[in-house]
Simulated scan of single mutants.
Amino acid sequence: MGDVDYEAWRNILLSMPGAYEDFPFGADAAVFKVAGRHREKAKMFGLLMHRGEVLSLNLKCDPALAEQLRAANPQITPGYHMNKKHWNTVTSGLPLELMRDLIEDSYDLVVASLPRLDREALGWKGIVGRG
């Protein structure tokens, strides 16, 4: 898995505070989770995998925004093996800055659902507070 998008996306995913990589489904699917105080209560915010020859990244998304993104970008489809209302699957071809925004949004949605003490442990300022 040495392609440029894979490494770039992986680096962004791992740059999020409290993020780490796990392989509960085997070596072909990297699951990116965020944990506050307790790693055993971590939640997934990204799933990076190759499906055949296609690199894809599942990311959580606000349902209304998910519909808009899918309509505007052929690289964004309903989440593969995920809740299609809340998750998108993204494939190569989008600008890296947009990918960073999509990853940050997924991270924020997941962290927002963590208990307050976990959010505080991560130093999370909230979706609106991010610059």
Rank of each mutant, 00 (worst) to 15 (best):
A66Y: 07
P63W: 09
R10V: 06
A66W: 04
E67L: 14
V111E: 12
V54N: 02
S92G: 13
K33V: 12
M99E: 02
E67R: 15
L14A: 07
P74A: 11
I76G: 02
C61A: 15
T89Y: 04
S92W: 00
L102V: 02
I103H: 05
D118H: 14
V54T: 08
E67A: 15
V110W: 11
A35I: 09
R70T: 02
K84C: 03
K84F: 03
F45W: 09
F23P: 00
K43W: 07
D62E: 15
T91M: 05
A72G: 07
L98E: 09
V90L: 10
I76P: 02
F25S: 09
L117N: 15
S106Y: 02
F23E: 03
V90N: 02
L69F: 12
G26F: 07
R39S: 13
E21F: 13
R51K: 14
P78N: 09
V90K: 05
N11Q: 14
V54R: 06
K85V: 12
S92R: 14
M82I: 08
F23I: 01
L57P: 04
L13I: 04
M44T: 14
F23Y: 15
A27R: 14
T89S: 15
E97S: 13
K84A: 03
L102C: 03
A30G: 08
A64C: 00
Q68M: 12
L98Q: 14
S106G: 06
A30F: 12
A72K: 14
D101F: 01
N83F: 03
A35K: 14
A30R: 06
D108Y: 02
